[in-house]
């Protein structure tokens, strides 16, 4: 017999739940016509069906965990790459700060301010070497 899928296990869990409900309903509907021993037998049967239902749920959950392993591994790897990209933003920002310093130098030169241009050039050098 081939192994159950998680969907089949969920379905069986649901079917056994419904069976236990049916047995319980019958027990109460026929309460006055049943002997104490019969009520007890039906109640025990109802609990057995509930246990089976819960066991199928447990199986389904185990299958889900197994089936998800590949998916979980792939998302974990993608997340690690995303975190590297987040770290890279800090590096990129440094490069951009250098570029920004260069624009300042350009602005200082455009302003016709030789002292300012010299200072901006000095800042640019500091940004590059920081």
């Amino acid at each position: 017999m081939s192994k159950l899928s998680s969907d089949q296990a969920y379905e069986l869990a649901n079917e056994f739940h419904d069976l236990s409900v049916a047995v319980g309903n019958y027990r109460f509907d026929q309460w006055d016509d049943l002997s104490a021993a019969q009520r007890k037998r039906l109640e025990d049967l109802q609990w057995t069906l509930m246990n089976y239902s819960s066991d199928f749920t447990a199986q389904a959950l185990n299958f889900v965990v197994d089936d998800l392993q590949g998916t979980v591994d792939k998302i974990t790897a993608a997340t690690a790459n995303a975190n590297k990209a987040i770290a890279n933003i800090k590096v990129v920002s440094k490069v951009l700060a250098i570029a920004a310093s260069a624009t300042v130098l350009g602005a200082s030169i455009m302003s016709g301010n030789p002292d300012g241009a010299l200072k901006a050039a000095d800042d640019l050098l500091q940004a590059v070497t920081a």
């Binding site: 920002s93 700060a97 920004a100 602005a107 301010n113 300012g116 200072k119």
Partner: peptide, 17 residues
């Protein structure tokens, strides 16, 4: 980078702009 760029204002002020 924000803090770094903010410091530029001081530097630029001293540069005669």
């Amino acid at each position: 980078y924000g803090e770094k760029l903010d410091r530029l204002s001081d530097t630029l002020s001293k540069s005669g702009l």
